[in-house]
């Protein structure tokens, strides 16, 4: 049974919900069972957020557990570290090299860990880093970080590029389609 488990981790407000919507749309068009699980509410206010996307012949649990993720899509470095146990050993780990200090770091009660990417690379062979914020800015909006990241992810699946572009067209507001497609291509070319 072929199945793919994708975990999206980041900080509330980074647009992970749109990401999961696009991934879900892609999932449907692959003709398999799909479940997407996300948490709304308080954590969306700058908290740690995680979304699970599972595709396969039959998906029971909507959540991904430790050691199960085929792809770990990280919108922020500290969040990559927080959820790293969920990745399979050979998972594609895609990390946006953006740092958002959590309040305990801002108030000096905790330290932001150093060299996160190196530490993860020491244990996992397939780690890609993405300067998604700069790439999104180059497309005209820092809000497109999420779609840049989807582009990077898309390249690492065997789902056709056109399927992804279709999903973006179906999901984002018409006035933002061009910007998002450009952002996707920036990520896809990495």
């Amino acid at each position: 049974m072929r199945s793919t488990s994708i975990m999206i981790v980041g900080v509330g407000g980074q647009g992970t919900l749109l990401t999961s919507r696009i991934l879900g749309t892609v999932g449907i068009s692959t003709g398999t069972d799909v479940k997407v699980s996300e948490v709304h509410g308080m954590s969306q206010r700058g908290g740690s957020v995680v979304t699970y996307v599972k595709m396969g012949d039959k998906v029971h649990s909507p959540i991904i557990e430790k050691g199960e993720a085929d792809i770990l899509l990280c919108f922020e470095e500290l969040e990559a570290l927080r959820w790293i146990d969920y990745a399979k050993k050979d998972a594609s780990i895609i990390i946006n090299t953006q740092r958002i200090d959590p309040m305990p770091v801002i108030t000096g009660k905790a330290k932001y860990p150093e060299n996160i990417v190196e530490k993860i690379k020491a244990d996992y062979p397939n780690v890609v880093t993405v300067p998604a914020l700069e790439l999104a800015e180059a497309c005209g909006s820092i809000k497109a970080v999420n779609v840049v990241m989807i582009g990077v992810l898309a390249k690492r699946t065997d789902i056709a590029e056109e399927t992804w572009l279709d999903a973006i067209r179906k999901t984002v507001k018409p006035q933002f389609v061009d910007l998002n497609i450009e952002a996707f291509k920036k990520g896809y070319s990495l």
Partner: peptide, 20 residues
């Protein structure tokens, strides 16, 4: 018990929600 797949023992600061 699920096996731990890495040697990362780093303390990860919590990220509580904040006012926007």
């Amino acid at each position: 018990k699920a096996e731990k797949l890495n040697n990362i023992e780093e303390e990860v600061p919590v990220r509580p929600p904040v006012m926007c």
